[in-house]
Structure formats: structure tokens, C-alpha cells
Design a protein around this nucleic acid. Sequence first.
DNA 1: AAGCCAGCCAACCGCGCGTAG
DNA 2: CCTACGCGCGGTTGGCTGGCT
Length: 241
Amino acid sequence: MRSPCCEKQGLKKGPWSAEEDQILISHIQNYGHQNWRALPKQAGLLRCGKSCRLRWTNYLRPDIKRGNFTKEEEETIIHLHQMLGNRWSAIAARLPGRTDNEIKNVWHTHLKKRLTSSAVSSSTKFIVKSNTKKELTVAPPAQSFSGISHSGTDLSNPPTGDDSKENHIESWDRGFQDIDEGLWRGTVLEMESSVLPMVSMAMEGFSSAPSSLVCDTEDDMSFWLSIFMQSEDLQGLPGIL
DNA sequence: AAGCCAGCCAACCGCGCGTAG
DNA sequence: CCTACGCGCGGTTGGCTGGCT
């Protein structure tokens, strides 16, 4: 059994003072943070390393974006949460300047309430083809849920009788996690020409949508799928090939 | 003005993972 | 392999604040 954090007597807990913040900032600016456990002692702080790391990553880091979340950021969080679930760090990775803690707080205090049943259409379907003989079908929740298959092998955990949307999404997400990262390298999302106008609309900032998208990692794949999920026009389409 | 309450959010806790020895 | 350690993640807590009565 691991000993709890801050077991040592005399270590301070609770809110950080301005003086402590300044000590931590100047120490990291001068020496970096290779070893969080050793840092408080080196810096002369009566804190545990974990507390220092948290203070730095969630509050003191220079690239932290302050202020309220924009409408766009909130929408992004909602859609990424549909895709990724409670993987706050993965969501934060797509929102520059926002921390996982901040996003988690915003989700629990604001966004969760805003979720409606229209979040994800059960008929949306993505078929993903790889250019390396690997073939994979990704089907989000639907009555005809077929799971995720790779070379004929079912990699997903099919729904267990509970038809709730949440469970289906979780199954879908688990399917993603089970896939070897290498599988995504070179994966191409091909789209039917009929959906291209909608894809184009979904991809703001692009003059025209490509007919296929190359993915190198699961993150790439998640990113593109999140783009599609953000488009109300695309939700409910019979398929993206 | 005082008390209560709900919401917010910084910070803490425990667990799991990766890695070095 | 096993163990200890460091770190990051997600869940939870509790103090603060502002609004309401």
C-alpha cells in the first residue's frame, strides 16, 4: 500500500499564498521541473511535490488561458466529451491554454446540464478504411450496433442489453482504446461524394473538404471524427465511407 | 444586516501506468 | 520478474462567494 501524499508532518496544505507562488515560479524558471518530488525541498517550499505540480500545471503555467470559456470552447468540450468520455486530459489537449481540471469543473458545473438527447444521432455511422489491408468499421450506438471489427475480429464490447446511449458510447470508446496504436498509421477516412458539401460546411476554415483524410494516430482519428460530430448537418447521415 | 443556500473552483486524494534498478 | 518510485489522471472535497430571503 502506497503511503498517502503529504504524509510527512509539517507540509503545508490548502490554498497557495502569493509568496509561495512566486517561489515556485522563479524556481521553475531557473531550474525547470525535472523532479517534482525533489522540487519543493530545493525551492524551499513546505509543500509536497504533487501539490507543486498541480499548482503549476493548473494555475501558474505561463500558457494558461484565463477568463471564461467561449461558446466555441464549450461546444468543443461537449462534442469531445461525447467522443472521449471523461478523458479530461485528452479533451484539454485539444483546447490550448485550458487545463483538464478547469474543463472538468466547467463540465460538472455548466455543460452537463446542457446536454440533451440530441447529442448524438444513433444513425450516424463511420466506416474507416486503412490503406494497409487493415479494415475497420466503427459504428456508434444504433439498434443494429455491430461493434468495431478489425480484420474480422470483434474488438469491442457489444452492448449488454442496456440500450442507453451512454453505454453504447462507452462501448464505442472502449473499442477505440483496445486498438493497437499502430493500426491508425496511414489510416484513411474516405467519404462519399454526396456528403462532401456537408463535410465542407463542417470544416470551417477549409476552402473545400478533401475526399479523404489521412490519420496517423488515434488522436488524428478522434480529431476528425470530432469535426464530424460537431456538425449537426452530418449527424444522422446514413454513412461516411 | 444576518443567515442560509447553491454554485463555483482550487486543491486534495487515491489509483494506475511507465520505468529504472 | 519484482519492487519502488515518479508522475499523470479522474473523482471528490471543502472553502469561498454571491444571491436570495
